[in-house]
Nucleic acid binder design. Structure first.
Lengths: 212, 212
DNA sequence: CCTTACAGTTAACACTGTTATCTTAGTGAT
DNA sequence: ATCACTAAGATAACAGTGTTAACTGTAAGG
């Protein structure tokens, strides 16, 4: 092995070790625990070393997010087998909730915090490819449903429908993530409510509701 | 006027001047601009002075939030006149969106950031009173709809229904607040999507949909 | 073998929230 | 009117944050 490529490999290993450590910190102690000095200490280096591998904290943090979006998409794999588009939508909301529940820190990070816009070119995810891009996956599912004539005739825009459905379950998820312990609300069980929301929206946009 | 009560009054004035300054800062330059030193400078005092009026930053920040929740509830006043509960729900989602659009910083602050649970006893808002508590207002509207027999028979829990509807419009609002400039998504117009979501959910939960 | 590139460190800067210590002014009581 | 006390406000400091400049040493490439 040539030193040239060994250096390259070591650099990559270092990079992913930093990302791993940062994510662990975020998962176990929350986002505010992710400081450059603590991440560095986690891999027995100094904070300044991180700047040899990442332009700034934002770039490090964006790398975490990128891999979390991959994880989200990969969690969709289990429903890719469902052929009926509407059934797949139902299954999708289910795994989406599961992801949110089991990756609460990541979820807040990806969808509740403001980040500078991510340039798709700088991501490992191919934007718009349903095999890599989670939103694109949802989009193709909706598109299939439209092609099958399953939605009412006034719903022809896949993005519009996708955003409607996503917003419904995303909304209840964020309420639970943020207001879980808030004494002002008596939250109903997340899965149940999410299911009812998805089902109601579907009943609202589908051409032939099951019961009417 | 006795010195005793003048002191009291001055203290209250100081308190609200601090809150005002902090909110201005948050609205104009975002939450991260709200630092104790900058708030203090805004009223020509030192940072330590703020600690004579607020236990810590969290208490200051919670006071802002409290008054923002009052503002939200007050924005509901315009729809209180609508007698039909379902029509009032529709109007409610409309003013809710308007509030979110015109108070983006406050909205993020109230619903997207995690705060330690607020003890209702320490708030100026009477918890559960629909005249003061925005969620309670939504709840009574839904309750009226249930009493009128407008919802399908499987929806009898006001909280459940309220959370469904709220989650729908809250979801699309947060997506727009957080992902507005994200190149990964092509967001459809907020008002339109929100309207479609609310309408679909209603069509899903109402006993007699308009068209079927 | 020598130069160069570069990973990593130390020290520092400008910030953050927060506290201890001090001054100063005004209140309440004698 | 004088005295003690309360409390507002300021100064200085501490521990922490992201980030940069300057330095060290080691390993790669010619």
């Amino acid at each position: 092995m040539e030193p040239r490529e060994r250096r390259e490999r070591e650099r990559l290993e270092m990079r992913s070790k930093i990302i791993e450590t940062a994510r662990d910190l975020m998962v176990n102690e929350g986002y505010e625990a992710v400081t450059m000095r603590r991440v560095a200490k986690g891999i027995s280096y100094t904070a300044t070393t991180l700047y040899n591998h990442f332009k700034d904290k934002e770039e490090l943090v964006r790398s975490i997010m990128d891999s979390d979006f991959q994880t989200l998409r990969r969690s969709f794999d289990t429903v890719a087998a469902v052929t009926d588009p509407i059934e797949r939508l139902r299954a999708l909301t289910d795994v989406y909730i599961t992801f949110a529940i089991s990756h609460t820190s990541a979820y807040k990070f990806m969808f509740l915090m403001q980040h500078p816009p991510r340039d798709p070119a700088e991501s490992a995810i191919e934007h718009g490819n349903p095999d890599e891009d989670a939103y694109a996956f949802l989009l193709t599912t909706v598109t299939a449903g439209i092609a099958d004539g399953r939605f009412r005739e006034d719903f022809t825009d896949p993005d519009f429908l996708a955003q409607m459905i996503w917003a419904g379950v995303h909304g209840i998820v964020t309420i639970h993530l943020i207001k879980a312990t808030d004494p002002w609300l008596e939250l109903r069980p997340l899965r149940e409510t999410a299911h009812a929301i998805a089902e109601s929206i579907l009943r609202g946009v589908l051409r032939k509701p099951a019961d009417c």
